[in-house]
Amino acid sequence: MTDPVVTIRFDGSGRVYQPGETLSGEYRLASVHIGAVKAVEVSVLWYTEGKGDEDLAVHEFWRLDTEQGDWIDPTRPGRFSTILPRSPLSYDGLIMRLRWCVRVRAFLDRGKEVVGQKVFQLSNVPAVKVSAP
């Protein structure tokens, strides 16, 4: 039996979005049978990478929870849509990077979790180039 997988797809073809633009798409849970999913969390968030400790902030967050009466059918794709904020923009610096992504976390029975994530770019700030000293 294959392991559960989360796949995320954005509407349209591009991965570069502008502030104020709508980001929408869908996610799918594969290799998961009906009733095995206890909760699903969908987040549109940014996080930092690099030298410093990670900062993370959620722009939009949805949670579906069977214990709260939500119906979760893993055979059907789930949709998400949000208007992107003005900041912070995606950034690729020397000692820090800022990434935007859609992250889907599914809580399965017996305490298992499966996470899928798809990175997108908010605006197009050019990457910092290392110049010769």
Binding site: G52, D55, S87, P88, L89, Y91, G93, L98, V125, P126
Partner: peptide, 11 residues
Amino acid sequence: GAMHSFKADHN
């Protein structure tokens, strides 16, 4: 192509 000012807890 300037990145805007940014302030978070660690970066």
